[in-house]
């Protein structure tokens, strides 16, 4: 038998396979910007998780209004000082503590809405691309319709009807974002379903569902992961935008968009009130975007040659 000869072709000692994801991860680990961004993201996540710690250390609960020490007699916020490290807001609350609590909202909405978006987008994109025919026609038109809806206007109208809440924010964002994911997935699947390994699975007797999720899905994950990483900051900004427009979380819940919205009347008199929540939002979205860029580069097929 000639097989033994051929075994020598691969002399790599590693028995554990190097998955494309592993390879991408290795490339990602060498990307300094992405790694710094990741550290920042981790810090923000830690800040959100340990937000109560900020309240404990400063001694300022997030919703406590300090009218004597936190506000001027004319109701203006107080600047950064020994008591309020990042100053106070328009109700005399600690900006630092509220930024920490606001991170919870931003990340929760960012992750939850993105998860809904990606889940719905993948399922519908897979179904449209793989099943084709009437299913595809209907779903593709639906995708077009959803993508052409002026998101912010409808979101504003919808939230006006239902009233603002965390779940409605997540649902609204999810509902309007899945179409992009579905479109990406559909495009990928359209070419993937013609690949021989799909035919091979079929010849083995695999059904549509199995082929879709076992054979096709892993192959669309890379672009979806890239898109997802880049979607999270968009969702965070969208949530902040809705909050800014008064459609976010009901007060007194701290969230960055709401803080920025409240601070806009004070930009000449209380720079810290707009600066720090704005910076928090900026740094978070920047970190996610740079990290997303890194992920995209890591999954870029052109980078395959570097392996």
């Amino acid at each position: 038998m000639t097989a033994s000869l051929e075994m020598l072709e691969t002399s790599a000692p590693a028995i554990e396979g190097r998955s494309p994801f592993l390879l991408a991860f290795r490339r990602l680990r060498r990307d300094k910007v992405a790694m710094v961004s990741l550290v920042v993201i981790v810090l923000i996540v830690l800040m959100a998780v340990f937000a109560p710690l900020f309240a404990t250390i400063t001694g300022h609960p997030p919703n406590e209004q300090y009218r004597d020490i936190g506000l001027t007699p004319d109701g203006l916020p107080r600047g950064p000082n020994g008591t309020f490290w990042l100053g106070t807001d328009d109700l005399g609350r600690d900006v630092l503590v509220r930024i920490a609590y606001g991170a919870r909202v931003s990340l929760l909405v960012g992750v939850a809405a993105t998860a809904i978006t990606v889940a719905v987008g993948i399922v519908l994109g897979l179904a449209a691309g793989f099943l084709g025919g009437v299913v595809d026609t209907i779903l593709a038109r639906l995708i077009d319709v959803v993508l052409s809806v002026p998101f912010l206007l409808v979101a504003i109208a919808l939230v006006s009807v239902t009233g603002p809440s965390l779940s409605i924010t997540v649902l609204v964002i999810g509902f309007f974002s899945w179409a992009s994911v579905a479109r990406i997935v559909r495009g990928q699947v359209l070419s993937l379903r013609e690949r021989e390994f799909v035919e091979a699975a079929r010849s083995l007797g695999a059904g549509d569902t199995r082929i879709m999720f076992v054979d096709v899905l892993p192959n669309v994950l890379a672009p979806v992961i890239v898109y997802t990483t880049l979607l999270i900051p968009v969702v965070i900004v969208t949530q902040a935008t809705l909050s800014f427009l008064g459609l976010g979380l009901p007060p007194p819940t701290a969230d960055w968009g709401g803080m920025i919205s409240a601070s806009q009347n004070y930009y000449t008199t209380a720079w810290w009130f707009i600066l720090f929540p704005g910076l928090a939002l900026l740094i978070t979205t920047l970190a996610f975007n740079l990290f997303g860029d890194g992920v995209r580069d890591a999954f870029d097929p052109r980078a395959d040659r570097l392996r």
Binding site: T2, S4, M7, A12, R18
Partner: peptide
């Protein structure tokens, strides 16, 4: 078929065309 069974966990890209 003449493959090293220990390569069970590898990915196709890690094999040559013949393999």
């Amino acid at each position: 078929v003449g493959l090293n069974p220990e390569h069970y966990n590898r990915f196709p890209a890690e094999f040559s065309g013949g393999q």
